[in-house]
Design a protein around this nucleic acid. Structure first.
Lengths: 169, 169
DNA sequence: ATTTTAAGTCAGCCTTGTTGACATTCCAAG
DNA sequence: CTTGGAATGTCAACAAGGCTGACTTAAAAT
């Protein structure tokens, strides 16, 4: 145990800040994320899509009529990278791109019926796992889970996350 | 709100199982994972490495002398994929591969001094963010965080995670 | 002696990220 | 009205890091 840990354990019960505890948290994050994506991945594979498509579908569904720029901010990828994914979704008839009303430079993105169906299947698979985890852990654990995750985000991202959270469509 | 949710809210306080709550959890996972990898990613970039290298360094450090096969199981990738990463780490003098003692078909993997240094820098950056999140959320939240993450893993993976957890090097 | 296992390698493919260059369209400021 | 800048789209090239399949070597197991 190094200096920092001895300091951290000073007065109170700060055992949860030892390097050992932090490392367990890191590994839990790594392994849990694998589970988190496993179920949608299986469905996506059947359609010849990848995670990038899932993410696009998710956020287009969340923020109906969003602009491409806004979507880029949420996804944290480049325009070109998103465009490739978006093009296939549009060509396959899962996403509709309409010229903006006020600003005709923008494109407003919507899911088609087929898009909503696939998004539903993907998110239901993901929710099912989350539901099982929540049920197993209980409400208090869930509150803690969310608190830690939110504290782990970059400030910029947390702002976007909060904005998303508050929206009531 | 659909059938399932009404059912879930039946007798007790199961508000945390609504689709809305689950969706928030899903988005929190997505955004938090970005933060989780952001700091090591910056360091890796300076060395011309990627996340795959980080993961390899992490688990070789965790399980000194592990075999390639064991590492494959932990990382969940193919031999060929790992081999590419491993080869560069060995060539760059961060990892040492020794012929197994008991079974000379196996290779036992170790970090060199330089390997330990990089691993230390990476994990310290990651721990620092985790530490800040833990501190902000508090011990009770941390316990819940871990409970939910562990419940989210595939059973097979959770076994590996537990095995890793119990080891005392 | 034969089969199986561990590791490594080569070749090729895919997804998804990156830069850079450039065209188009349109809004808004001068 | 003109011009500058913003939003979008497209093309090209590239890299990381997954994947499969085929094959070799060496050593262990049967």
């Amino acid at each position: 145990m190094d200096q920092r840990n001895r300091a951290a354990m000073g007065g109170e019960n700060l055992l949860f800040l030892t390097d050992e505890q932090l490392r367990k948290g890191i590994e839990a994050m790594f392994f849990a994320y694998r589970g988190f994506t496993a179920d949608p991945d299986r469905i996506l594979e059947q359609h010849g899509y990848g995670r990038a498509h899932h993410r696009a579908l998710h956020f287009i569904n969340r923020t109906h009529g969003t602009s491409v720029n806004n979507l880029l901010g949420l996804l944290g990828v480049t325009k070109q990278s998103l465009n490739r994914v978006l093009r296939t979704l549009i060509n396959d008839g899962l996403v509709e791109s309409r010229v903006g009303r006020n600003d005709r430079r923008e494109r407003n993105l919507f899911l088609t019926h087929a898009g909503r169906e696939l998004e539903r299947a993907l998110s239901e698979a993901q929710r099912e796992r989350m539901r099982a985890a929540y049920r197993a852990a209980g409400p208090q654990a869930v509150a803690g889970f969310r608190q830690v995750l939110e504290a782990m985000m970059d400030d910029e991202i947390r702002t976007q996350y909060d904005t998303l959270k508050e929206r009531r469509p």
